[in-house]
Amino acid sequence: MEKLSGIQENREFVEARETSRNWGTMLVWALVLGLLAILGLGLARAQEGPIGIGRNVPEFTLTTFDGEQLNINKSRGKVVLVNFWASWCKPCQQEAAELEEAYQNFKDRDVIFLGVDYVDTEKEALAYLEKFQITYANGPDLGTKISQAFRIRGVPETFIIDRNGIIVDIKIGPYTSLAEIENALQTALEQ
């Protein structure tokens, strides 16, 4: 009798061990697969590049240097050009004057320009706007939230959004000519 209960105990012991082992196994698998999933997602994100053509524009509010609040959702029905720039960015200067010129040509045709100033200091940014006599709305990318939403890789990058809030054109690096900007806007307007 005693012996039997001893076996019984032993069996319980073995079973307890088995269950704890099963839990351990499951935990190990969860960790391994979780790690792989995180790496996969991270990799997918790294490979994704900027937010794609045909996607909805991410929601954001730009606080301009003048303190005005511009919400992207309020610009439905108009074509919006979002340009990421910075005063320390040399290539940005190549397109600055052309962007302003395009703005002058298109501002009466339901087109809004938004300049998002990426990781910049206010004094230099204002000097830059002054230098290129830029008149369209510009503001800092507070908390680098807008640039993260668009997943930009660097500056300059420019996104054109159509009347329905869909991204229709992306330019990585500076525009090389006024015509290039105007063609892109024209296409967006005609859509």
Binding site: V32, L35, L36, L39, G40, G42, L43, R45, A46, Q47, G49, R153, G154
Partner: peptide, 28 residues
Amino acid sequence: SGVLSSVHAFAQSAMGPLFLGFIGVTFI
């Protein structure tokens, strides 16, 4: 693979996914 810093030029290459596959096979 460029998973850490997405600024690198080679982030777009097919190396990342292949490497991930290899890691998956090795780990599992």
